[in-house]
């Protein structure tokens, strides 16, 4: 056994992760190799020093953690609705497929000119993050489309980009009813990303991109106000976390990421 192979055994022996056979092999090598003995001493010294570096949390950390939890899993806070985790009881219920009425997604502003201004031109994306790269991919992948005319699932001109005006598909509900978790965090130009995990919803809203088992949709932020009601769940809550307080609930647009069917 050469010294290169022994390194892993040395390291694992510090962690108590060696089998008896490996321990024997290690000892046999060390008996005749001063270099590895020296290495074990040094690594052992570092290991013991790490063990003594106990980080003491600052006083009040626990209180800070607890006071920031939703008071109950039903509480809502201002200005953004704080949506707590879905109640466990709901998670166990097999949720039927539903369709978000298109009327939810009208912007709060009056129709017409306001909608024009709400439509982003080329979406200049903000600071780079991994999620931003995906958003950029979503924007680039979405073709510009003519205004759709499918009355049944009409998504009128609204604060969503041109690509969203392609035909409004409905998507069958994904299997599995894990409780949705809704995250909202800033995404530069988009202002927010909403992720709904484990949803077995179908979205009456055109997808921008399907990637890695996810569907991406552009929604006006105002749609979030109606999301709980639209989901048809009584005491439902979602945790809505925002990065920063500068998100305009009316004007912001949201990239909604949902599991693909």
């Amino acid at each position: 056994m050469n010294c290169e192979d022994v390194l892993e055994l040395l390291s694992a022996s510090l962690d108590g992760e060696l089998s008896p056979e490996e321990e024997t092999q290690l000892q046999a090598h060390l008996a005749s190799c001063p270099r590895c003995r020296g290495l074990r001493e040094q690594l052992g010294q570092i290991h013991r020093a790490c063990g003594e570096m106990e980080a003491v949390p600052p006083a009040g950390l626990r209180e800070n953690i607890l006071k920031n939890l939703p008071a109950q899993r039903g509480a809502k806070a201002h200005p953004w609705r704080r949506w707590g985790a879905m109640a466990a009881a709901v998670a166990l219920v097999a949720l039927a497929a539903w369709r978000l009425p298109h009327t939810l997604y009208r912007p709060d502003r009056s129709s017409g000119a306001a909608q024009e201004s709400a439509v982003p031109a080329p979406l200049a994306l903000g600071p780079e993050t991994p999620v931003m790269d995906r958003a950029r991919g979503a924007v680039e992948a979405a073709p510009a489309a003519a205004p759709e005319s499918d009355a049944g699932a009409a998504v009128k001109e609204n604060a969503v980009s041109d690509a969203a005006k392609s035909q409004a598909d409905t998507f069958p509900a994904p299997a599995g009813g894990r409780a949705p978790v809704v995250d909202l965090w800033s995404l530069g130009q988009f202002k927010a990303v909403v992720t709904v995990e484990g949803s077995d919803r179908s979205w009456d809203y055109p997808a921008q991109l399907q990637d890695n088992g996810e569907m991406w949709y552009l929604l006006p932020a105002s749609a979030l106000d109606d999301l709980p009601g639209a989901l048809g769940l009584p005491e439902t809550e979602y945790t809505l976390r925002t990065e920063g307080d500068d998100l305009d609930p009316q004007g912001a647009r949201i990239l909604l990421v949902a599991p693909a069917p």
Partner: peptide, 10 residues
């Protein structure tokens, strides 16, 4: 811990 609180039902 915020994530844990929210994710505990799962």
């Amino acid at each position: 811990f915020f994530n844990a609180w929210r994710g505990l039902p799962n």
